[in-house]
Design a protein around this nucleic acid. Structure first.
Lengths: 110, 110
DNA sequence: TTATTATAACGCAATATTACGATTAAATTT
DNA sequence: AAATTTAATCGTAATATTGCGTTATAATAA
């Protein structure tokens, strides 16, 4: 029904899913990569960087803000965006942890 | 419109987004964690492990198979699932690469 | 052959996501 | 004050996702 049964899964599973969902659109990946590349606050020029309308970019920014990966501070007429270092490292660690186990299947069927 | 403008983003951006989408549901995370924990092929008992109906589990398995993260081999009446080691490491590397840059913002506004 | 078991496929309903034009809000410039 | 700039919000349309009952399908067991 498009409704995820969140309460039936572990906190870790929901956390991975939530963070993964934030990265599950190329526009949001592009936004994060752009902010990472610049290593600074971006005031304004994000819409020109993406092949999407201003309203759509704003919506993706909102989602990234909702999970806490970016922050936006109003700077006069424009808004200053940057990656939240603390959250970024938390998300990184969640993924690193997920991928830390080695895959070793001894069975012949694989 | 629910349609992602894939062609307007880089291959890397689409790759991260695609793999993230595969992890963007707690049930699929749970499936992967279960396969990782067992370190072997799982024949059958996946539905009992999850708080979802068989049809729903089957659908999540299909999605994980579609991105190549798991493989299923028919073993008599049941199907044997395991993580595709090669793909798993590829996905891991894609995420590691995404998170390899350090966040250093010198601006006062952040 | 006829159950039984295990899993995939189909189809539907509810909800979520993506995209964007239009509007609004708030600060800046003229 | 009026016009301009920038970005959020609203409303809407198209499509995707999630969940599950039901129905195949296919191998094994009785």
């Amino acid at each position: 029904m498009g409704v995820t049964k969140t309460q039936n899964f572990t906190e870790e599973q929901n956390q991975v899913a939530t963070y993964a969902k934030a990265l599950a659109h190329p526009a949001r990946v592009a936004i994060l990569q752009y902010l990472l590349k610049k290593q600074t606050c971006i005031c304004g020029d994000l819409v020109e960087e993406l092949p999407l309308a201003q309203a759509t970019v704003s919506q993706h920014l909102k989602e990234l803000k909702a999970v806490g990966l970016i922050r936006g501070t109003v700077e006069g007429t424009s808004v200053c965006y940057c990656i939240d270092k603390h959250k970024w490292e938390e998300v990184r660690d969640v993924f690193f942890n997920m991928f830390s186990s080695n895959v070793e299947c001894q069975d012949k069927c694989c």
